[in-house]
């Protein structure tokens, strides 16, 4: 199924959780925050929540800044 991650289309299999997706993308989940369809997903739910067709995800992290 197709989902959108940070404005890029990605293919993922049904049943993929947010934690799975982060792992597949090689993203360190310690320091990320995730929005799914414009709603913040608490990190405690990363493993429970399964992605659905057309989900729109925004994954952010900390970078250097002033």
């Amino acid at each position: 199924m197709l989902i959108t991650v940070n404005d890029e289309q990605k293919e993922c299999s049904p049943g993929t959780s947010i934690a799975d997706l982060l792992e597949n993308l090689g993203i360190d989940k310690r320091y990320v925050a995730v929005e799914r369809n414009h709603k913040i997903i608490p990190r405690t739910q990363f493993s429970e929540i399964q992605l659905l067709e057309s989900d729109n995800l925004e994954i952010v992290t900390f970078v250097g800044g002033g």
Partner: peptide, 14 residues
């Protein structure tokens, strides 16, 4: 120390 919030890099090498 201050930090900024930006999109995570999802392409290429982490």
């Amino acid at each position: 120390v201050t930090v900024a919030v930006r999109r995570a890099n999802i392409g290429g090498k982490p």
